[in-house]
Computed example of a mutant assay.
Amino acid sequence: MHQHTINASIQLLPIVQDRHPYDWVDEAIAVIQQSGIKHEVGPFATVIEGGYDEVMKVIHDVNEKLFELGCNEWITSVQIQIRSNGPITGDEKTAKFQ
C-alpha cells in the first residue's frame, strides 16, 4: 500500500459492566495521543491521519491495549479513506466549514 496520507475514523463501543464505558474509551484515546499521530477527538469517534501503515498500527494498538487491560468485549468501528494517487486529509474535507 502507498504511504500517502490517509485518514480514518475510529469509534470504540465497550460492551462491559465492570467499568463505565467511557473509562475504556479514555484508555483508547490515550493510546492514540501517545502515538503522536495527528488526531481529533470527537464526541462519537476520533479521526486519525497519517501514512497507511501508521494509521493501521494505531488501530491495532488500541485493540491490543484494551485486550491487555482486560476489557471483556468491545466493538471497534473504523472508516478509512484512501486516495490512490495522493494524500487525502481531514483539512481538505472540512476547510470550507472552518
Score class of each variant (00 low, 15 high):
16 V>D: 15
76 T>R: 10
88 I>N: 12
55 V>M: 07
66 L>N: 00
84 S>G: 03
48 I>F: 07
88 I>E: 08
67 F>T: 14
54 E>G: 06
77 S>N: 12
65 K>M: 12
38 K>D: 10
97 F>I: 02
75 I>E: 02
81 Q>D: 15
26 D>Y: 02
36 G>R: 07
93 K>T: 02
66 L>G: 04
9 S>W: 03
90 G>V: 13
44 F>W: 06
67 F>L: 15
10 I>Q: 07
31 V>F: 01
94 T>I: 14
76 T>E: 02
56 M>A: 12
58 V>S: 07
25 V>H: 02
47 V>R: 13
39 H>I: 04
13 L>F: 13
28 A>C: 12
64 E>T: 11
55 V>R: 09
72 N>V: 08
19 R>Y: 07
78 V>Y: 06
21 P>T: 06
8 A>G: 11
94 T>A: 12
51 G>P: 00
49 E>G: 14
56 M>P: 03
92 E>R: 09
5 T>K: 15
84 S>D: 09
75 I>D: 03
19 R>E: 08
92 E>F: 06
12 L>G: 00
53 D>R: 14
87 P>E: 11
43 P>N: 11
67 F>M: 11
81 Q>C: 08
13 L>Q: 05
52 Y>L: 10
70 G>I: 09
87 P>I: 00
83 R>K: 14
32 I>W: 12
64 E>A: 09
61 D>A: 10
20 H>Q: 12
19 R>K: 15
76 T>I: 04
21 P>A: 05
43 P>M: 13
84 S>T: 13
31 V>A: 03
76 T>S: 15
91 D>N: 13
61 D>Y: 01
86 G>C: 12
13 L>C: 05
94 T>D: 01
70 G>M: 05
95 A>K: 15
86 G>V: 11
43 P>D: 12
31 V>Q: 09
38 K>N: 11
31 V>T: 14
25 V>F: 06
48 I>C: 05
93 K>H: 04
86 G>A: 02
11 Q>Y: 00
36 G>F: 06
43 P>E: 06
42 G>W: 09
34 Q>G: 02
87 P>L: 05
4 H>V: 00
17 Q>I: 09
93 K>M: 15
